[in-house]
Amino acid sequence: MDNVISADGTSIAYDRLGDGPAVVLVCGGSVDRMSNAPLAALLAENHTVYNYDRRGRGDSGDAEVYAIEREFEDLDAIFAEAGGSAHLYGTSSGAALALLATAAGRPVNRLALWEPPYILEGTRQRPPADTASIYRDFVAAGRRDAAAEYFMAEVVGLPAEFVAMAKESPWWPAQEAIAHTLAYDATVMGDYSVPEKAVAAITQPTQVLTGGASEEWMALGNQAVVELLADGSHRVLPDQQHNVDAAVLAPALKEFFA
């Protein structure tokens, strides 16, 4: 593990693996860089992979006030370590962050997005517009468990029985530990509609990947992103859901980044 210092002085931790063209991996909500570790190991067969902890989670530091721009600056620091530019991959809300960062002018060569969870009108109920405030209020009140439970039940839409089981699982304390970052991802997602101006501003070759077994609303939102891209493609990975198998995803990414 290494560290870089972001523009605001926050320490950002990352693992560097392999050798070859640089690829930066962005994790999604309620997880740290370990969620991308299996994928990083497979991509490292052909690439130099930078798998980092987004601010506020894992081994990275944080700041008192959150802003999406600070996450862009974190990526700037990682890109500098990677030699000035890199391919960029993001998953879920991390895909939305990667998309926004690319649109804002970060030095991305090729952009790959796994299931950015944009919701088209009429396909599924969107989370409340003030979701970030809901998370912040729970955390401020010392109810990190409630924040994590709200994310699973009300935002992801997991069944009540799964959420109850999760709260009894050994990994639940880790969910509570990073519950404050749920507000960060909610800020990135906004109202969960496709950020049309940002998508249209992206000129880099971009591939949006969707699981063939994922819900229809996800596929429709992903297709809407592709239609707005200047150089976009859509790839469906058969039998995969949102929690994609790294052994299935890695060959697709290697092909696209090549």
Rank of each mutant, 00 (worst) to 15 (best):
Met1Arg: 13
Asn3Leu: 15
Ile5Arg: 13
Gly9Glu: 06
Gly18Val: 00
Gly20Ile: 03
Pro21Phe: 01
Ala22Gly: 03
Ala22Gln: 02
Val26Met: 02
Gly28Leu: 09
Val31Glu: 02
Met34Lys: 15
Asn36Leu: 14
Leu39Gln: 00
Ala40Gly: 07
Leu43Tyr: 03
Leu43Pro: 00
Asn46Lys: 15
His47Asn: 14
Tyr50Asn: 09
Asp53Tyr: 00
Gly61Ala: 01
Asp62Gln: 14
Arg70Leu: 13
Glu71Asp: 14
Asp74Phe: 01
Ala77Asn: 02
Ala77Glu: 02
Glu81Ile: 09
Ala82Trp: 00
His87Lys: 09
Gly94Thr: 06
Ala95His: 07
Leu100Thr: 02
Ala104Met: 08
Ala104Tyr: 07
Arg106Thr: 10
Pro107Val: 04
Leu111Pro: 03
Leu113Pro: 03
Trp114Ile: 03
Trp114Tyr: 13
Pro117Ser: 05
Tyr118Phe: 15
Glu121Ile: 13
Asp130Phe: 05
Ala132Lys: 07
Ser133His: 12
Tyr135Leu: 07
Ala146Val: 11
Ala148Gly: 10
Ala148Lys: 02
Phe151Ala: 06
Ala153Trp: 06
Glu154Arg: 15
Gly157Leu: 04
Glu161Ile: 13
Lys167Met: 08
Ile178Ser: 01
Ser193Asn: 12
Val194Ile: 10
Lys197Gly: 10
Gln204Ala: 14
Gln207Val: 15
Thr210Phe: 08
Leu220Asn: 04
Gly221Cys: 08
Leu228Cys: 04
Ala230Val: 12
Gly232Lys: 10
Ser233His: 10
Arg235Asn: 11
Val236His: 00
Leu237Lys: 00
Asp239Ile: 06
His242Asp: 10
Asn243Ile: 11
Ala247Tyr: 09
Pro251Thr: 10
Pro251Ile: 05
Leu253Ser: 06
Lys254Val: 13
Phe256Cys: 10
